[in-house]
């Protein structure tokens, strides 16, 4: 895709906005619609757009398939780890109240962390699907 000048310029303008919007949806999900699932998908869409326009090799230089596999597992690990942390701190599995001194504060921390885990896994898996499906 050497000659698609308009596509390349527009993509360069759009991709940072898409990624920032994904982060907004991720970390503002407690106050507005959104959360880890939607944020992960939007984040992946930014990378996929880059890959579609600049080529699979370029986007693989940004995030290698090996890294993507590790982050996909890390997200699930983070989620389950928050559950185990609640268990170790004297609560039940996935009980966030014990994560901080104040139960409401613990809930905030727990939700933030598990949403981060969801977002990481979803984004990684979607980018991985693109890598696998788009290969010639």
């Amino acid at each position: 895709m050497e000659h698609h000048l308009i596509l390349r310029v527009i993509a360069k303008l759009m991709i940072p906005l898409i990624l920032v919007f994904a982060l907004y949806v991720q970390f503002h999900g407690e106050y507005s619609p959104g959360g880890g699932f939607q944020a992960g998908v939007i984040f992946a869409a930014g990378f996929i757009l880059y890959g579609l326009i600049y080529g699979l090799d370029k986007v693989r230089q940004v995030i290698s398939p090996v890294t993507i596999r590790i982050t996909a597992a890390l997200g699930v690990l983070l989620y389950a780890g928050v559950g185990i942390a609640g268990l170790l701190l004297g609560g039940q599995f996935l009980e966030y109240n014990v994560l901080a001194s104040d139960p409401v504060h613990g809930q905030h921390l727990g939700i933030l962390l598990i949403e981060l885990g969801v977002g990481t896994t979803v984004a990684s898996v979607m980018i991985m699907f693109f890598y696998v499906f788009a290969r010639p």
Binding site: G29, E30, V104, Q107, I111, E115
Partner: peptide, 24 residues
């Protein structure tokens, strides 16, 4: 209990945490 304005998030992430773990 949760202190979050978006009730959908508090149900999905806290009250039904197991379910979301299963989805992930």
């Amino acid at each position: 209990e949760i202190g979050i304005p978006n009730m959908v998030t508090s149900v999905l992430a806290s009250y039904r945490g197991y379910d979301t773990l299963g989805e992930v």
